[in-house]
């Protein structure tokens, strides 16, 4: 029932979106850009934006759910896409409001944004990267998935996935093997670079979580690289 209803709305909104004036009426994109700061540790938009912890969001309006090539979606989102769900304003709005209510197995570690106006502003900002590919600014990507700078030599370490698999057993006491995000974020399938950056942010006590500071604090650079190599390909 849930899925059918979404698919129906998707169709309606897809028709509305064909009218050119629609994008200007969503919300205040400048305000939305401020809100985007919270999203950009995982998502990128703009020129050269790539999939990071989350998929890049260029062209998200009108994109089929769970369909960005090379990104590992939760089964639920992938299935919604196969069932015909296409991201448009109303659906994105509902998703951002409460991601887990929309797709219970989503890997997006985000609680949701309750304020309707803020959601509209954020979507107005995102919409800039979707109107048509020509509108994507020639600036550097607004986010490289980084909220912490890591020495390029550390980023360049090639991890040993076999060692990573052994080390990962410490992670899976808390992080679910299914990749589900349920109070504790899923970490299955993260791009290695993002994984390394996040772990070093904990190791350097830049990110605040005490358990993760402790876990990362005693991992060597090689061990972090090994874990990153393992989780990138883990399914």
């Amino acid at each position: 029932m849930f899925r059918i209803r979404n698919a129906a709305i998707g169709l309606t909104v897809a028709l509305c979106a064909a009218t050119p004036s629609f994008s200007n009426e969503i919300g205040n994109a400048a305000e939305g850009e401020k809100l985007w700061k919270e999203c950009k540790s995982c998502h990128a938009v703009g020129k050269d934006a790539k999939n990071r912890v989350g998929p890049h969001l260029n062209g998200i309006f009108g994109r089929r759910a769970g369909a960005e090539e090379g990104f590992k979606y939760s089964k639920g989102l992938a299935r919604m896409g196969k069932d015909g769900l296409v991201w448009e304003f109303d659906l994105l709005d509902r998703y951002i409001e409460n991601p887990k209510a929309f797709a219970s197995d989503t890997r997006m570690s985000y609680k949701g944004l309750k304020d309707e106006k803020k959601r509209a502003d954020l979507l107005a900002f995102l919409r800039r990267y979707s109107d048509n590919p020509g509108d994507i600014p020639e600036a550097a990507p607004t986010a490289a998935g980084t909220d912490h700078s890591v020495d390029p030599d550390i980023l360049a370490i090639q991890g040993d996935p076999e060692y990573g698999e052994y080390l990962s057993s410490e992670c899976t006491s808390c992080h679910q093997l299914s990749g589900d995000n349920d109070g504790i974020p899923g970490i299955i399938g993260w791009p290695a670079e993002d994984f390394v950056i996040a772990m070093h942010a904990y190791k350097d006590k830049f990110r605040p979580h005490p358990v993760m500071q402790m876990m990362a604090g005693r991992l060597s650079n090689d061990e972090i690289a090994a874990l990153a190599a393992y989780f990138e390909v883990a399914e």
């Binding site: 808390c174 349920d182 109070g183 504790i184």
Partner: peptide
Amino acid sequence: ESVGWYAG
């Protein structure tokens, strides 16, 4: 987090 840990 504890609920997530339980599932994990």
